[in-house]
Amino acid sequence: MAGEVSGRRTPPALPGRMARVRRWWGRALGSEGHERSTVLLIAKGTLAATIAWVISFHLLHAQSPAFAPFSAVLIMQVTVYQSLLQSSRYVGAVVAGVAVQAALGFLVGPDVLTFALVAVVALTIGRWPALGSQGSQVATAAFFAFSTYVSATSTLDKSTQLGQIVLLVLIGCGIGILVNVTVLPPLRYRSAEHGIRTLAHALCDLVSDIYPALRERGLDEERTGRWRARAEQTGELVTQARTGLRMARESLHYNPRRLFRRGRAATHFEGYTAVMEALERTLRQVAALTRSLDKWSADEDRYRYGDFLAGYADFLESLSRITRVFADLDEDRLGDQTSQLHQLADQAQNCRRRLAEQAERDHLPLTDPGRPYGVLVIEAARLMEEFQYTCDVLQHHVER
């Protein structure tokens, strides 16, 4: 009975896993994304490693042929630019490590003291900032070179084997770069779009929570406190968005595919950069808005100036429509989306003007620091300015 109960409560794991595998491969084959990038990187790494092995083992008959495929895979970065950057650092690190071993080995001899000296010097050189993440390869190369040096039987053989290590690394890096450049070099346009979408979603969700409460005059300390906390916790999203944009821009450098993609000019990234920076500033403006609302506890004002709050709710609702378009930003539909954004921006401008007129009719205490009206009016103007600027700059880069 216990086994039956256990059997009923624990469904077979294999069908579920197979379904997840099928979905994963469906995403990899059906659309651009992380899954397809993973499959492509594995395939290119396999191709580069195989070619490097054939050359080093079958053609050169090297004693340490694994250096070539290892190097080919090591510098198979996501972007062509990173492949070139990391390969130059890696080759520099290997040359430095082999040079340290050659100098100390021939001067002192193959003993324990020499190994200790090699380790000290190699680890010290590896701290050089110019080598970046490849700094550890100085010591790795030096240790492999020491092993090769010790096993060699003559001075000529020692020199030949040390030089062969550098040659194999150069062959591996060259093959890795060649494969990465010629076999579907990655273009990360979608990374930039994803970063903007993430920020726009966060902004849209927050604004969409605020304007109904303003319209219903449902401002309480708990609710405004949550808004303020959410607005102040967007720093990580901003960092992720910047990383995505950096990868997208980086993928253009030295990438031959950019020459064959119609309608995807590099200038679009300038527009994406402006959009992202404007969204960051807008998030800060909304954060200031939530702080003002969080400090406001004059309950009677909500009813006395209810028309103003309703007008402010209409204004924020108009902004939320703009953020929804940004949250669905797609380069293939950028022309239509920019036209839609301008229409929505005009509607938001009208809402802001009506809000300013309502503030004049109600004779709001704009100069009273204990009440939020002055800050709310100023923030409305700043928010509208940022959104209008964002729509304009995106339109400008689409038309270029």
Rank of each mutant, 00 (worst) to 15 (best):
A2M: 03
T10G: 05
P12C: 04
P15R: 07
G16L: 11
A19V: 11
L29H: 07
K44N: 01
G45Q: 04
I55L: 14
Q63P: 02
S71G: 06
Y81S: 15
V91L: 15
Q101S: 11
V108W: 13
V108H: 05
P110L: 08
A119V: 14
L123V: 10
G126V: 10
A130H: 11
V138C: 09
A141W: 04
G163R: 13
V166H: 11
V169I: 08
L170R: 02
I175V: 15
T198H: 07
A200H: 02
A202F: 01
R217C: 06
E221W: 10
A229L: 15
G235F: 04
G235K: 08
E236K: 10
R249A: 10
E250Q: 12
Y254P: 00
P256Y: 05
R258A: 14
F260V: 13
R264W: 06
R264T: 03
G271M: 02
Y272F: 15
A278V: 04
S292G: 09
A298D: 15
F308E: 03
F308M: 06
S318M: 01
T323C: 14
V325R: 08
F326G: 01
A327C: 05
D332P: 01
L334W: 00
G335K: 05
Q337F: 02
Q340A: 08
Q347C: 02
R354N: 12
D362H: 10
D362G: 02
H363A: 15
G370M: 07
L376P: 02
